[in-house]
């Protein structure tokens, strides 16, 4: 081992990092080489001087100066939210991914299994949501729009062979004068192109839909409405006979529930005739009702008639 090789090992030798053989070689060389021995001593003194430098005392003002310089640690709100949502990221991110997948699969399953989700959207007249008691738009323009929309939907359903749901069919007795006037003034391209009976059905459905929207929220199953009315008479038997006669003539039905309680099922179209015939017979129902009550999907008005003395 030459002098330079030994001098390259002196630092490691003084640190005690050399193995047995290199250490012995360095010691043997230094014992015989005065110059390398002197270098070893100088290196030892250099390291001793460095290690003998004591620590410098910290200025008393330093700590206070540092603490005065720091600002209160405020975590930004988005960092708080992000930390809460995502950290530790190796835990929360996989959980969120799995949760998202499960929710997506559940939504697809629900969509495929529930018929109400998989069916085509209902026509506006059946799905439009109008809270009970809220006024239905009755402006001329609104009705004209609905007529036009209903005409287009009817045509589409006919062309696809679909049957319109029964509950949407409503055949009121009274003609809506405003609707009739609007139908005449509606764009020829929409209304006049239809056969007369088709337009009539559309008009009736429009009127019926407006009545239904007043009576029930959208999407609810519409029960057969029953209207309670009273009729004053001193001779119930005679009154029942006359009422039965009138209703039968109008192709309706009478069901006697009790001695003074009748259930009348009258075609909606014939409702005004029913009232006229009653009046001609000297009877009057209360409360007086000129407009037809809500009809069932089959177009029948049901009255719960109680005879009072």
């Amino acid at each position: 081992m030459g002098c330079q090789d030994v001098r390259n090992q002196l630092s490691a030798y003084l640190e005690g990092e050399l193995g047995v053989a290199p250490r012995r070689m360095v010691e043997d060389h230094v014992r015989q080489c005065v110059r390398c021995q002197g270098e070893l001593v100088l290196l030892q003194r250099t390291i001793a001087l460095l290690r003998g430098l004591d620590e410098v005392e910290v200025p008393p003002s330093l700590s206070a100066a540092i603490q005065a310089g720091i600002r209160p640690r405020r975590r930004r709100w988005w960092r708080e939210v992000a930390s809460w949502l995502f950290f530790p990221i190796h835990v929360k991110l996989p959980i969120q991914a799995v949760a998202l997948l499960l929710v997506s699969l559940g939504a697809v399953y629900l969509y495929r299994s529930a018929p109400e989700f998989s069916q085509a959207p209902q026509p506006p007249v059946a799905t439009e949501s109008v809270p009970r008691g809220e006024a239905v738009p009755s402006t001329a323009a609104g009705r004209a729009d609905r007529l036009d929309l209903a005409a287009r939907q009817e045509a589409a359903q006919k062309s696809s062979g679909q049957r319109e749901p029964q509950k949407e069919r409503k055949v009121p007795e009274q003609e809506d004068a405003a609707a009739r006037a609007l139908r005449k003034s509606a764009p020829e391209s929409a209304a006049s192109a239809k056969p007369a009976e088709e337009r009539e059905a559309l008009r009736e459905r429009d009127i019926g839909a407006r009545v239904l929207r007043k009576e029930a929220p959208a999407g609810a199953t519409i029960p057969a409405p029953v209207q309670d009315v009273m009729l004053e008479t001193s001779d119930p038997a005679r009154a029942i006979a006359r009422i039965t006669e009138i209703v039968s003539a109008l192709e309706g039905k009478v069901e006697v529930k009790e001695e003074r309680h009748l259930i009348l099922m009258i075609p909606a179209k014939a409702y005004s005739h029913f009232l006229t015939a009653l009046k001609d017979s000297g009877y009057a129902v209360s409360p007086p009702t000129e407009s037809p009550p809500a009809a069932s999907p089959e177009g029948t008005v049901t009255l719960s008639l109680r005879l009072t003395p």
């Binding site: 001098r7 390259n8 630092s11 270098e39 290196l43 250099t46 390291i47 001087l49 460095l50």
Partner: peptide
């Protein structure tokens, strides 16, 4: 090691 040797030479 190089730093120690250099300082040693300077001292």
């Amino acid at each position: 090691h190089r730093a120690r040797m250099e300082l040693k030479e300077r001292l």
